[in-house]
């Protein structure tokens, strides 16, 4: 039986963390700072959000902490790239490895758990209760019963869109990505701009991570981000680094999960359900490549540089 309400609920909750992360990722990508580290920043955000929620007793404080730590992660990556002069891709991979180690270490040290930490009765963010309007078409269907974080994330998308299209900063990051010389000639500091975009990307990844940790279950599991950060990056690449389009593509990836979940009841093995977002991501990128090729933009062979001078 095809339950539209469960389908939509699954789609919304599967999309939300990807959407949040992709929105910030679009900023970084715009500034030519491909943020592979979003995966780790999500994980950091998830862990911090849950920890601070439990310690302070307030899930809202937890959320703020998750976002702040994600932003710090972005700054850290920027330092590695600008001060240590690491290749941004490889530094991002290193960052993910490090975060995955640190979170594992911390849940072991503080909670004596290996891999999964499930605190008893953790504070969670409230759910949206539309009361009498719960059955309103559309709004009720999409929002009722979801975490308020869904609303927060929607607000972030709108805010990011305004910043991107209307603000000075939006113009500056576009300039950094498109013509560095123009930025320098205009007297702006590209390093500061790039660091800011990475911090923003970290903050929204922290938001996405918080969604994983304190919206529904209140559990942290090692590598619970499960590649969502990479998927968000793929969405950003697919959308050509535009905020709204990145969010929409992220929703598409979330929909693929909802579809697969629907098919599970009709016999699709759980493993195939779980691999759906990854397959969808590869297919999405394939589409990008084919489109780029047919539009006559020849692919560039640019080696990744692990160790530089």
């Amino acid at each position: 039986m095809f339950g539209l309400d469960t389908f939509i609920a699954t789609a919304v909750s599967a999309s939300a963390p990807i959407v949040a992360t992709a929105v910030g990722g679009a900023f970084a990508e715009r500034a030519r700072c491909t943020n592979i580290g979003m995966e780790g920043m999500m994980l950091m955000g998830a862990f911090t959000a849950l920890s601070v929620s439990v310690i302070s007793g307030s899930a809202w404080l937890g959320l703020l902490a998750g976002i702040a730590v994600g932003a710090l992660g972005g700054v850290f990556l920027s330092v590695a790239v600008h001060l240590l002069t690491c290749d941004i891709i490889i530094a991002g991979i290193g960052f993910n490895m490090m975060v995955s180690g640190v979170t594992l270490l911390l849940i072991d040290v503080f909670h004596g758990e290996s891999g999964t930490w499930a605190p008893t009765r953790p504070p969670l963010l409230p759910r949206i209760d539309l009361g009498a309007y719960a059955d309103t078409p559309l709004i009720g269907l999409f929002l009722h019963g979801q975490s308020v974080l869904v609303l927060v994330i929607l607000a972030v998308v709108v805010l990011a869109w305004i910043v991107e299209s209307r603000s000075r900063f939006g113009r500056h990051i576009r300039a950094v990505g498109d013509n560095l010389e123009a930025v320098v000639a205009a007297g702006l500091n590209p390093t500061v701009l790039r660091t800011t975009t990475l911090a923003i990307s970290g903050a929204t990844a922290g938001l996405g991570g918080s969604f994983l940790a304190i919206s529904a279950l209140g559990v942290f599991a090692a590598d619970m981000s499960g590649g969502l950060g990479f998927i968000a990056l793929a969405a950003v690449i697919f959308a050509g680094a535009s905020v709204v389009r990145s969010a929409l593509v992220a929703v598409l990836f979330g929909l693929s999960v909802a579809f697969a979940t629907q098919f599970q009841s009709s016999g699709l093995p759980v493993q195939f359900v779980l691999m759906t977002p990854y397959v969808a991501t590869i297919l999405g990128l394939l589409l990008v490549g084919v489109r780029r090729r047919s539009s006559g933009n020849p692919p560039i062979i640019n080696p990744t540089s692990p160790i530089q001078h």
């Binding site: 590695a80 240590l84 002069t85 690491c86 290749d87 490889i90 530094a91 991979i93 290193g94 960052f95 993910n96 490895m97 490090m98 975060v99 995955s100 180690g101 640190v102 594992l104 270490l105 692990p306 160790i307 530089q308 001078h309």
Partner: peptide
């Protein structure tokens, strides 16, 4: 071990 691994990646590829 995993923490160390991440740190090493930064230090090995940085200048």
């Amino acid at each position: 071990l995993f923490v160390l691994q991440g740190v090493l990646v930064f230090l090995m590829t940085g200048n």
